[in-house]
Design a protein around this nucleic acid. Sequence first.
DNA 1: AATGAATGAGCATTCATTCAT
DNA 2: GATGAATGAATGCTCATTCAT
Lengths: 194, 194, 194, 194
Amino acid sequence: MDILSAAEHVFGRKGYYKATMQDIARQAQYATGTVYLYFKDKETLYFSLVEEKMRDLLALIKERTAAVRDAQEKLKIYLEEKLDFFEKNQDFFRIFILENGAAQASIDSRIATSALAKEYLACISEIMRLAQKQKLVRADMDPSQGAGIFRSISNAVIMDWLKKNMQQTLSLRQMSRFILDIFLGGARPSDETK
Amino acid sequence: MDILSAAEHVFGRKGYYKATMQDIARQAQYATGTVYLYFKDKETLYFSLVEEKMRDLLALIKERTAAVRDAQEKLKIYLEEKLDFFEKNQDFFRIFILENGAAQASIDSRIATSALAKEYLACISEIMRLAQKQKLVRADMDPSQGAGIFRSISNAVIMDWLKKNMQQTLSLRQMSRFILDIFLGGARPSDETK
Amino acid sequence: MDILSAAEHVFGRKGYYKATMQDIARQAQYATGTVYLYFKDKETLYFSLVEEKMRDLLALIKERTAAVRDAQEKLKIYLEEKLDFFEKNQDFFRIFILENGAAQASIDSRIATSALAKEYLACISEIMRLAQKQKLVRADMDPSQGAGIFRSISNAVIMDWLKKNMQQTLSLRQMSRFILDIFLGGARPSDETK
Amino acid sequence: MDILSAAEHVFGRKGYYKATMQDIARQAQYATGTVYLYFKDKETLYFSLVEEKMRDLLALIKERTAAVRDAQEKLKIYLEEKLDFFEKNQDFFRIFILENGAAQASIDSRIATSALAKEYLACISEIMRLAQKQKLVRADMDPSQGAGIFRSISNAVIMDWLKKNMQQTLSLRQMSRFILDIFLGGARPSDETK
DNA sequence: AATGAATGAGCATTCATTCAT
DNA sequence: GATGAATGAATGCTCATTCAT
């Protein structure tokens, strides 16, 4: 098993601080020192893991959303990719939701200021801007704030799914319709159900 | 300064792991050992802090929302109290958003399974249920999931406010209208702007 | 046993790098962490030890040499105090001879640039200058270089004494006459012995 | 670049402990393991380096001093060769002055008890003995002690030169006259200046 | 001969926790 | 109740050394 996978496993289960480099090395079936051949220190290992996953996810999203013009379709695709991704990378999800800035100073700021994080945010904000242009989303909302809200809602739903659906009989991807409904239309009953 | 306030100050600024018991004792103007007279260990101190604040917030919310019957009004009041509370307890906010389960396993589960947390969730879920009865909120949404989404959206907005409004010229409470709009009506343009 | 004495013992026997903080703690009959209550880190402990000893020696030398006016007498007293001091602090001598700059960069420069080291050097240079004024020492010699040579000769003799006189039947102090003779008159036979 | 030269470079700049075998291998443009084909371990590499240089220097000194009979001339030649040698091998000088026994026990004693070191000392002591026979040096001085003092004085001067003459506009060899003056005649003003 | 990835013992340092006063 | 010096287990990280290729 490669080191990043081992790190994902351990960080995901124990969190950054409780995870030890020895845990990770053991999980990767390496000696302690070997981990340091590939990653300068614990923080860098963590950072690299976040970057790798973020890069993968971003690549997927960019590729898939580029194919369509319609903002609502883009949002839907983005959401589906994200849900798929987190269904496959549940260990990583625990890490990723900290991205919002709740974890530790030095690492978080390193992540937040990384080119990739900015690109990720820019990509979602871009979709939001397009949605505004296409009158799908209200104009009086800052695109990056819109992106934050969209992410929050989806994270909340993913979290809920993780808790209630431990056996995972239900695919996370199926929640995309619901999330999009909520984001666009809110919690109020739609007209036809009134 | 009492120990819980000191803990709030230090945990809020450094996070659970970087905060040391000595930091907290120093901040409280007590000797290290004294902290242990009141709290069995670090985890318990953290847990007690979260509980105390949650109790305060919950009491406020219960008291204020009990006075009205209308679900939308209840939601508005809940939101305003929460925003006020976090504006006054910004140190605590950083702690509270971790409540979602992204921090370290043992404490998080202790918090999540605490009677108070359940009561808090129940209180919000109850409001959701009422909102469904009053046709304010769509029926096909699990009340606790609705509560999660509502909390996520407000947390996202608070976070945004914290970042962009460091000088705090704008009161957080003023965001309640916007949050409620988003939660109920979603991001789609309202009819009149169509 | 206090920590500085333990450090002197261990550093003197093992040298800076081979000495471990655990060695020192054990020697001082403390737990590892206790050493860190008093000294920030290993380097600081080492530095503090050197400073303490240097301060003691310098105080002795200043006090005793202040009492006389004659440069040759001053040199003799300086030498006797130094020899006495190193006879009593043999562990420390191994450390002190590194003072010349042969040890490790960060520590050495910290020592070399310390106020105390400068004062020590200034004190000896001052005596040299006086010796030049009193025609005891040739004028075409930089005082600090003279000090360096004087120190070198005495260090060489101390080292020799340490090697050949392990049983220490001979007092080191008795070498002062010889060292002074060599420094002032050189190795050439004196007139009367020609 | 051969391994010993690389070792000289690295040891001279970083000192024994801070120098790593990887540093040395990199400098020698070899893989880490290759160094171990030629040298059993780090200590042996260090030791071999010291021996090689000492052998070179000793060979030079022996060859050049054998040509003359006069003790003073021998001392002068010895000194000039040594100064030349260290001017060419400044990295090595930092290593060599530790030879005095201030570094780490195991290696130092290995060096001190090596046949070569003994031969080196014997060679200088022999010159001292001859100097005594020729009445150049006082009889009441142990030859090996005399050698130690002579070496100390020259080391002090070289050290001084290294510090003050970083730009190296002044050749070190030119200091030989001064060193010999000091060693033989001491610091006292010469008769003509009285 | 040469490689360099892998090893793992070893060390500096931290910090939650205890307990004699 | 209060203290704060002392503890020592735990952890990140280094680096000399090995060995399969």
